[in-house]
Simulated assay, not measured.
Amino acid sequence: MLPLCGPPPDDPPHPRPDEGNVKLLVAAHRRPRQRSLSGGTARAAVTLALAGAATATCFDGVGQAAPQPTPTQVRARVDQLYREAETATQKYDGAKEKADAAARRLRTLGDEAARTQADLNSARDALGSIAAAQYREGEIDPAVRLMLSDDPRHYLESAEFAQRAGARQSAAVAGVRGRLRKIEQLRGAARGELASLTSRQAELRRHKKTITAKLDEARRLLSRLSPSQRAEVTGQDTGGSPVSSPTAHSTAPTARALGGPGSVTAPTSRAATAVAYAYQKLGSPYVWGATGPHAFDCSGLAQAAYRAAGISLPRTTYAQINSGRRVSRSDLLPGDLVFFYSGISHVGIYVGDGRMIHAPNPSAPVRLAPIDQMPFAGATRVV
């Protein structure tokens, strides 16, 4: 088979017509030779081959556009992307918490080093004054001073004072040395904190890149749907259910949180305050990494709600689940934190009647939702 690239090979050379092979040559010339492809014939063969390949491709359907995914497929993929983005968000939140702590420690070390440096400068100035005074007085043997003194008693008193001054000088030198050692220790600690901060900042950039990529893909998928399909996929239009009406129950949060008619009572006033705060934030937008007061991610909402109640919660879901006493699903009370998925990547605030308030994802604001909407992973009672 001839290659498609380059000219066809030349015919093999004929043997020399000597007497020993004349008969063979004659027989060979009587047989019809195969004509080799050359010039326009080869080009025609290539054109036909390419045309055939293109035709086959069209018939096989490879060149046709891929079919658009159905709303159900889009919803499944978008949900997966949001879960993956939320997992990355919790890692981002944890890294940011550690980066902020490293930055605070670095500032503290810098302030302490500045104070120590100021003390060192003062101690050095004092040593300089002592050294200058000694230089002016000269180094005279004490026995000679006693013999030459007009008033030996006065000299002895002066010698005792000089001895005390020498002790103070030694203490000053020791103080300078101690401050120098402390400054070196502070500088070493600062270098360690700076390395930690740099590492956390690189980790933040990696998680941010992951989150942004997944959310961008989810937005692209949703943009291909019609408005009604988008509403169906994001759960914004489900016949007026509590999930799709973020402000439907925002008029009486305190009564329900404190145990109004037909509701379950919050176990403490602080839990009731946290629930009331969550009700007040219904309809607030989801923004990854946000902790309020106007936008939240899921763990940011839980942290802000309990901050309003005077309780400091950790920043991430996988730390928040260990911030109180574990409770079973059957024993839930308003104010309990409820967690979802095997990786503990989502949290909501239980408000009673099998519902929670949570910050779902970028396509949905803070809202009420049933706790059986996602795979339940555990619950914690903070107070």
Rank of each mutant, 00 (worst) to 15 (best):
G52C: 15
A101F: 05
L109C: 03
G324K: 03
D372Q: 06
A45H: 10
A195Y: 08
S244C: 11
R307K: 15
R145N: 12
R115G: 08
K281Q: 15
P67E: 13
G260D: 04
G354N: 11
A195H: 11
A51P: 08
L225N: 00
P365S: 12
P12E: 13
K209S: 14
G262K: 02
S342R: 14
R164A: 06
G188M: 04
R326M: 08
C58M: 15
P69A: 11
P12D: 12
E137Y: 14
Q68F: 14
G260W: 02
T89G: 11
L2K: 01
E217G: 01
P17M: 09
F339R: 00
D216F: 05
A167V: 15
T273N: 00
A377V: 03
S228R: 09
A113R: 03
R230C: 05
Q73Y: 09
L368M: 12
D60C: 15
R107Y: 09
A56Y: 13
L50A: 14
N21D: 07
G289T: 07
A131M: 14
D336M: 12
D141S: 15
R367L: 13
G348V: 04
S244I: 09
Y350E: 02
A133G: 10
T70C: 08
P17T: 08
P227V: 09
D151Y: 11
A305L: 06
A162T: 04
T268K: 07
Y279Q: 00
K209D: 10
G335N: 02
T291D: 05
A278S: 05
V144Y: 13
A364P: 01
A56G: 15
I357V: 14
A132E: 12
R16S: 10
M147I: 13
Y277F: 12
A126V: 12
L215N: 04
L109F: 09
I349F: 14
D125T: 14
V338Q: 01
P3W: 03
E137P: 11
T108N: 07
G300E: 01
P9S: 12
A65K: 13
G63L: 15
A51I: 05
A65D: 10
P71V: 15
L215W: 06
E137V: 14
S38T: 11
F59H: 15
S129E: 15
Q185C: 03
A278E: 00
R75F: 15
R224P: 00
I344P: 01
L222P: 00
R206Q: 07
T89N: 09
L197D: 04
A66P: 06
E86M: 11
R315T: 03
T212V: 13
P314K: 03
A113L: 13
